[in-house]
């Protein structure tokens, strides 16, 4: 695959730190779009604010860089106006679960055909390493030098509870799996959320003795297991990977279109 076809080379090298996992997720996303045979003119990538939200700047699709936490609201507008387009929303854990937490749950509830990609590095990287809602309890950040007291959000369970019809999870170590899950999520008719654990060696790794990017990726391999595998069954403490929710449900644009057709019929 020719990756460069899908990126804006003039903005490279990108601004992400050495070893940051976000570039791996971007590469997987480009691979997923390529594998689905989508034209660049059919794809819209919309982000909010944060390290991961710099992604649309690097991608040669229709792109929007919007307000912190509000990317899903903008994406809702785009999708309602042009249901024929494929809309992808890369988000960070803070963007998705804190600032935009309400947009996330309601987008999931409506089941609008959007693909939310949450690049979860468990910390606010861009602003200096503060705790996020996904920083594991007891882990350190610049705002929690003695460890975070708050229990963390499980984004998969959050999305499931809010009614998302497709939810999956992977890590940057599992780059091929991430690409396949992203392709499945984009192809899914309805709201899909893919959580990808991504390493932040600069803040999360340094604050938690996680080591460098390579060590953090090895940790992703150790602490996760494919859902339904023997390893996952033997150790419930492991984080499960793969497609975790996949339930066909009425898609919002389809229901809206149906309503418009029905009411137009009454007027005639």
């Amino acid at each position: 695959m020719n990756t460069r076809r899908y990126i804006r080379e003039r903005f490279f090298p990108h601004l992400w730190c050495p070893g940051c996992g976000h570039g791996i997720v971007m590469s997987a996303l480009v691979g997923a779009v390529d594998s689905l045979g989508l034209s660049q003119n059919e794809v819209v990538v919309i982000s909010g604010i944060g390290c991961s939200s710099r992604m649309p700047g690097y991608l040669d699709f229709h792109t929007m860089h919007t307000l912190h936490g509000r990317a899903l609201a903008f994406a809702t507008g785009v999708k309602m106006g042009r249901p024929d387009l494929t809309v992808i929303v890369p988000m960070g854990d803070g963007d998705a679960a804190a600032i935009g937490g309400n947009h996330l749950i309601h987008a999931a509830r409506r089941n609008l055909d959007l693909t939310a990609v949450v690049l979860n590095n468990r910390i606010y990287g861009m602003t200096g390493g503060q705790s996020s809602p996904t920083t594991p309890e007891g882990d350190r950040s610049t705002t929690a030098p003695y460890g975070v007291l708050d229990p963390s959000f499980d984004l998969v369970e959050l999305a499931r509870g809010a009614g998302a019809s497709f939810v999956a999870r992977s890590t940057t170590y599992h780059a091929q799996e991430t690409r396949e899950l992203l392709a499945a999520a984009i192809a899914h008719q309805g709201f899909s959320l893919v959580e990808v654990l991504s390493q932040c060696p600069t803040y999360y790794g340094r604050k938690n003795q996680g080591g460098d990017a390579v060590a953090m990726m090895k940790t992703f391999k150790q602490i996760t297991a494919p859902a339904g595998s023997q390893r996952a069954a033997q150790d419930p403490g492991l984080i499960t990977r793969g497609i975790l929710v996949q339930e066909p449900r009425t898609e919002y644009c389809a229901a809206y279109g149906e309503l418009v057709r029905e009411l137009s019929g009454h007027e005639e």
Partner: peptide, 15 residues
């Protein structure tokens, strides 16, 4: 192609 897939800088291409 694992290097290309895991390169966070998109600096590697198998071609």
């Amino acid at each position: 192609g694992l290097c290309q897939m895991r390169c966070p800088d998109l600096a590697i291409e198998l071609r």
